[in-house]
Computed example of a mutant assay.
Amino acid sequence: MRRKIRYSIMAIAVFAAAVYLNNTSLLASHRQGMPVLLAHRGIAQRFDERDLTNDTCTAARMLPPKHDYLENTIRSIRAGFDAGADIVEVDVHPTTDGQFAIFHDWTLDCRTNGHGLTRAHSMAQMKALDIGYGYTADGGKTFPFRGTGIGQMPTLDEVLQTFPDRRLLINVKSRDPSEGEKLAAVLNALSAARLELIMVYGGNEPVQTIQRLAPDVKTASRASLKACLLGYIGYGWTGILPQACKNTMVLVPVNIAPWLWGWPDRFLNRMEAGNSVVFALGPYRGGDFSTGIDTPELLAKLPVDYSGGIWTNEIEAIGKLSGN
């Protein structure tokens, strides 16, 4: 009996040692280089993020402005790249005349002087709107950007033409699979070299459609992110990469990262071998996904010499702090 117990203990010890050696980042090759910075919406006006719902008008909760950039504009995107972003995220909505508008909100009422569903308008109609109309930091007493955003809502084509060699992350705001079909047609018309610089994330249904029609594009959805992270936590110790972690964008909240086998370098190497890219986020606290790495304190939670991706809403600050 004692011999069996001793053999069992030895077997467990050998197994534990094998798991450790297979997953410790200490024995993984270190990824050289600077972090890859992703600027969410370019340079944007910040807002009070407490108690947000899907219907919250964030323009009406703007914090006192530190600059005059309006998100999702050519000027904002350019400023994001100039501040050190390697990738800029933009939001798209289809228009009634077959284009894609770069704009965040599902409706026009919050930020603009327009009304109704964004996708229920033509691009010409939206070009006539003032996208700075609704921003206020004092409860509606003043509107500092009113009148400055007329004609500033770009099309996806304009963004692609203005930044032909820059990396972009396109956010599909709907759950409509037909939107995935329309966006896939736009992407498939690009050159192979340009397509390599594009990623797409958003609703499960349009993203699945893009995966099918434009399989070379890296994509992500809430469903794929959940499947990837849970699968990896569950059996990533084997070295087997879940299918959901291949050819995708993996978002990793900083408080979830320590649970990932081989974090950071072995994890990053495994994702790279699966043709995937990783971006660290702010802490996940349940409900909606987490915020970005927006403060020096959150940046300090990443490993020393971390060279993966960083998602931020404060590219002008994080770009300087990360050395980009």
Results as ranks from 00 to 15, higher is better:
Gln161His: 02
Ala227Cys: 03
Gly134Ser: 05
Leu169Gln: 03
Ile293Gly: 11
Leu197Cys: 09
Ser178Lys: 01
Ile150Val: 12
Asp97Gln: 06
Gly147Phe: 08
Arg222Val: 08
Ser76Phe: 06
Pro154Trp: 09
Met199Asn: 07
Thr219Ile: 11
Pro64Thr: 15
Trp311His: 08
Val250Gln: 06
Val250Thr: 10
Ala44Pro: 00
Gly286Asn: 02
Lys301Asn: 09
Val278His: 02
Met62Glu: 13
Gly308Ser: 13
Leu302Pro: 04
Arg78Tyr: 02
Ile210Asp: 00
Gly231Ile: 01
Glu181Tyr: 09
Arg166Phe: 10
Leu27Arg: 15
Phe103Val: 00
Arg2His: 07
Gly98Asp: 06
Arg31Met: 10
Glu196Gln: 14
Gln99Tyr: 05
Phe15Arg: 03
Pro264Glu: 15
Val90Pro: 10
Tyr306Glu: 04
Ile210Tyr: 14
Pro303Thr: 14
Leu190His: 10
Ile315Gly: 03
Lys218Tyr: 04
Gly149Phe: 10
Leu299Met: 09
Cys228Val: 09
Pro283Tyr: 14
Lys226Gln: 14
Gln161Ala: 06
Glu316Arg: 06
Thr107Ile: 14
Val250Tyr: 04
Leu183Glu: 01
Arg46Trp: 14
Tyr235Gln: 15
Asp48Gly: 06
Ser8Gly: 14
Arg75Ile: 08
Ile74Trp: 05
Ala185Thr: 00
Arg3Ser: 01
Ile318Pro: 12
Thr291Val: 07
Asp138Arg: 02
Ser290Thr: 01
Gly231Thr: 15
Gly202Glu: 02
Val186Arg: 00
Ala137Thr: 12
Leu168His: 00
Thr112Cys: 03
Ser76Lys: 06
Gln152Asp: 12
Lys246Glu: 15
Ala280Trp: 01
Trp261Glu: 03
Thr58Gly: 15
Asn247Pro: 13
Ser191Met: 04
Asp165Cys: 04
Met62Asp: 13
Asn22Phe: 07
Cys228Ala: 11
Thr295Arg: 02
Asp105Pro: 14
Gly180Tyr: 08
Glu158His: 01
Ala79Glu: 03
Leu230Pro: 08
Ile77Trp: 02
Asn23Ala: 02
Val19Thr: 13
Gly231Met: 11
Glu205Arg: 03
Asp48Tyr: 13
Met123Lys: 08
Leu27Gly: 06
Arg3Cys: 09
Arg285His: 13
Ser224Asn: 13
Ile9Pro: 05
Asp86Phe: 04
Trp237Tyr: 15
Tyr284Thr: 01
Gly180Val: 02
Asp305Arg: 12
Phe100Asn: 06
Tyr284Arg: 09
Leu298His: 07
Gly98Thr: 08
Asn255Ala: 13
Ile210Leu: 04
Gly42Asn: 01
Ala124Arg: 00
Pro144Ala: 02
Gly42Arg: 01
Met62His: 11
Thr248Cys: 07
Gly234Lys: 14
Val217Gly: 13
Thr107Ala: 11
Val19Phe: 08
Pro154Cys: 08
Phe289Thr: 00
Thr148Ser: 06
Gly98Ser: 11
Glu71Ile: 02
Leu229Asn: 01
Val92Asn: 04
Lys141Trp: 06
Ser178Gln: 12
Ser307Phe: 07
Met199Thr: 15
Tyr20Gln: 07
Asn23Ser: 04
Gln208His: 08
Asn54Arg: 11
Leu117Asn: 09
Asp294Tyr: 03
His104Trp: 04
Arg175Asp: 02
Asp265Ala: 14
Arg166Tyr: 10
Leu187Cys: 05
Pro296Cys: 03
Lys173Glu: 09
Glu179Met: 05
Ser178Cys: 00
Lys320His: 06
Leu63Thr: 14
Asp288Phe: 12
Gly319Arg: 05
